[in-house]
């Protein structure tokens, strides 16, 4: 018998997980939108973000806001570095080469962190967690913080892409990478900016994930990252609002399947649903099929 308060509780959990997925999915979709390439190291940027958060809280003893800002800045820097190493030298090479270097960078990051921290680390509590009980429903301050902050970041990103000159340039490069430089758009700088933006969002997601599920391990970026990638594709990769939608959808499916069925079915049902959706709408919910020129 579905219990309304249980349902509500699970909805909050779904929003929390979904907002983390959506933040990571945005990183994939931003890079894809501009370069038409999948950033396969993005899940590991997220993981490194989680470890930066752990380090900042443990060694530096920073509180929440400085930690978040520091981690976002470092992750953005790492994103830029990734672009320099894995993407820029290969921009004219076969598409798949850049994918492989990105995969390589991801594996390198995983094992770099693994060499330093061979065991999963638990993250200290950065935010004092208060639970409010209102009319039989309980809200935790952490959940509200995560959801609120993610939605805020998403709105900010949406504003940057749709209303600023940089966003205009990003959309223009996505439209046609060869003509846009002729019009005076500094393509390299815009691409760097895109990677920084994606990295910062990944770092923020890393912080939130390690607050919500306070253990970080070097391989957490693999599964969470790929799932977020699926969320991005589900919404239509390259489409920013699609990535948000896909993230919340995936979070919802995962939480509710685990809530009402044995939790071992969670991945199966989630992925089977996604597969079905992709068969019905091969280019994602909000994506449009690319026009093919013959």
């Amino acid at each position: 018998m579905p219990n309304p308060s249980y349902f509500f509780q699970q909805s909050l959990n779904a929003l929390q997980l979904g907002s983390i997925y959506a933040l990571i999915a945005l990183g994939y979709t931003l890079v894809y939108g501009v370069l038409r390439m999948i950033n396969f190291a993005h899940g590991d940027l997220f993981m490194v973000g989680g470890f930066f958060c752990f380090a900042a809280a443990t060694y530096l003893g920073l509180s929440f806001v400085p930690t978040l800002l520091l981690v976002m800045a470092l992750a953005a820097l790492l994103g830029v570095l990734l672009e320099r190493v894995a993407y820029r030298p290969l921009r004219n090479a076969p598409r798949v080469s850049a994918v492989i270097t990105a995969l390589g960078c991801g594996i390198f990051l995983e094992h770099l962190v693994l060499a330093r921290y061979p065991y999963p680390q638990s993250v200290p509590e950065l935010v004092h967690n208060v639970t409010w009980h209102v009319a039989g429903l309980s809200f935790s301050s952490l959940q509200l913080l995560i959801v609120g902050l993610s939605v805020g970041l998403m709105l900010l990103l949406d504003f940057v892409v749709r209303r600023t000159m940089v966003g205009l340039a990003m959309r223009a490069i996505s439209w046609d990478m060869r003509v846009v430089p002729l019009l005076g758009v500094p393509v390299d700088r815009i691409i760097t900016f895109t990677f920084a933006l994606g990295g910062a969002l990944g770092g923020a997601a890393g912080v939130m994930y390690s607050l919500a599920y306070p253990v970080v391990d070097p391989f957490m970026g693999v599964l969470v990252g790929w799932k977020a990638f699926i969320a991005a594709v589900l919404g239509g990769i390259g489409n920013i609002r699609g990535a948000m939608l896909g993230g919340f959808l995936l979070g919802g499916v995962e939480i509710f399947v685990a809530a009402y069925y044995p939790s071992t079915y969670r991945d199966f049902v989630a992925f089977a649903l996604l597969l079905g959706l992709l068969i019905l709408r091969p280019y994602g919910l909000l994506g449009r099929p690319p026009t093919q020129k013959v």
């Binding site: 894809y32 999948i38 790929w226 990638f229 699926i230 594709v233 990769i237 071992t264 079915y265 969670r266 991945d267 199966f268 992925f271 089977a272 996604l274 597969l275 992709l278 091969p282 280019y283 994602g284």
Partner: peptide, 16 residues
């Protein structure tokens, strides 16, 4: 890229 996702989801489904 969409076929990549299909195969990715397939791997996860087999595993679960």
């Amino acid at each position: 890229d969409y076929l990549a996702i299909v195969t990715l989801a397939f791997t996860m489904i087999v595993k679960s």
